[in-house]
Amino acid sequence: MSEGLAASAQEQFAAAFGHAPQGVVFVPGRVNLIGEHVDYNDGLVLPMPVREGTAIAWRSAPGGEIHVKAADFGSEDRFDLSLPEKPEATDWRAYVRGMCALAPVRPVSGLQLLITGNLPRGSGLSSSASLCVGVGKALAEAADDEADSVALAQAAQRTEHEWVGVACGIMDQMAVAAGEPGKALMLDCRDLSRQQVALPHDWAVGIVDSGVTRGLVDGEYNARRAQCESAAAKLGVASLRDADLAMVESGDLDPLERKRALHVVEEIARVGSAARAIAAGDLPAMCTVLREGHASLRDLFEVSVPAVDELVERIDALLGDAGAARMTGAGFGGSIVVVGERDAIGGLPALLARPVRLAF
């Protein structure tokens, strides 16, 4: 747990409600090393938890009301735990209410909740998944129970779908619910089988904020998913996980669908290449994977933006053979992930004249 953030949540809870909380949960955000836009295509992904995340202080309360305060927004919400209603706006309240409605474990009494976090909003580091899984964990603790990580992730994904309107895959939710600090999570998004992958001790994973805030509920994310599903249907497969390059190149797809499908098929293969590179400590191979992945997101999936492309190119030039960068997350801004020699990444902030946060 992020001790500083947990202590802050406890202090803010006491100030807001006039008494100490019974407990505090912490859920990290995530950065994805490779495997972008393939989770909703039943593909393989390689995310890892980051140091920053969401802390939720909680205390049981009489009755069945949830009283939640979002410290970072200076706002609050009250609703009946037995029958949460969708709020008019899809802001933080939609995530909290949706998770309270769908969580696998819930207390019988009401709750007071204080939410705070240190994940930059719009950075592509899964602040929404962190929030949802955090709410689920707080509910389980208040019920004196322990929710299964897969059940928590699935409830958080349903919250995104049904309460927020984002047709996301399950990578983010599984990464923050089941990931381990300092390790990447090799996740099969079809059957949710997974393994923890330790990175070489002399490697580091850096995160650079591009300065371009992105959002998902503008339709672009859902449009990409629809294009992939249309391509899969035309190819006669359940999902693009079951397609190969020969099928995509010869299939009756329109030009846009072909580009999307090519990215997915090649990106899934890149995840396997990345896992082998990590296991072998082969940094040049990992750098190739990252650079090819960014080019594919830029040219085939078309979810990057010029400011991000320029920053990725600059980081690649600065690192040379010592590391590589690519956009991470759904796209249209957000963060850049950098994998490379620990010493080289340690020197990046001075060269870039901007912060570089370490994932672990």
Rank of each mutant, 00 (worst) to 15 (best):
L113Y: 02
V27G: 10
D218Y: 06
I207N: 01
A232T: 10
G29K: 02
A344L: 04
V166E: 09
Q112I: 04
I66F: 00
G4Y: 03
P107M: 10
A324M: 08
V356R: 02
A344S: 11
G211K: 01
M174Q: 13
Y95T: 08
A307Y: 02
I170P: 00
G219N: 12
A279M: 05
F13H: 07
L256F: 02
S75P: 04
A269W: 01
I170V: 15
C132G: 01
K137F: 11
K183A: 06
G323P: 01
A6F: 07
Q227Y: 01
S75V: 07
D316S: 11
D242I: 00
K137G: 04
L300H: 12
M1G: 14
F26S: 14
L46S: 00
G182H: 13
V25L: 10
G110N: 11
A198E: 15
G43N: 09
S75N: 06
K259I: 09
V166R: 05
I345G: 05
Q12S: 14
C287W: 03
A269C: 05
D244R: 04
G333Y: 11
H263W: 05
E88I: 06
D209V: 03
Q157V: 08
A14R: 13
S126A: 15
D172F: 08
L290H: 06
A103P: 03
S128H: 07
A280S: 15
V27H: 09
E146Y: 05
A322R: 15
Q112F: 12
V27A: 07
C287R: 06
E249G: 00
D252R: 07
V166H: 09
Q173T: 13
D321E: 15
L187D: 11
A175F: 03
T90F: 02
A353Y: 01
L102Q: 13
T213K: 12
E313V: 05
F73I: 05
V308G: 07
H263I: 06
V308Q: 04
R190D: 15
A55H: 08
R326T: 12
E257A: 07
S60D: 01
R194D: 12
R354W: 08
A223L: 15
A226R: 14
L245S: 08
V24R: 07
R158S: 14
R158L: 15
V303L: 05
F79Y: 00
T54L: 10
R97P: 12
Q157W: 06
Y40C: 00
G281T: 09
T288V: 03
A330T: 14
N41V: 02
S296P: 13
G206P: 02
E341K: 09
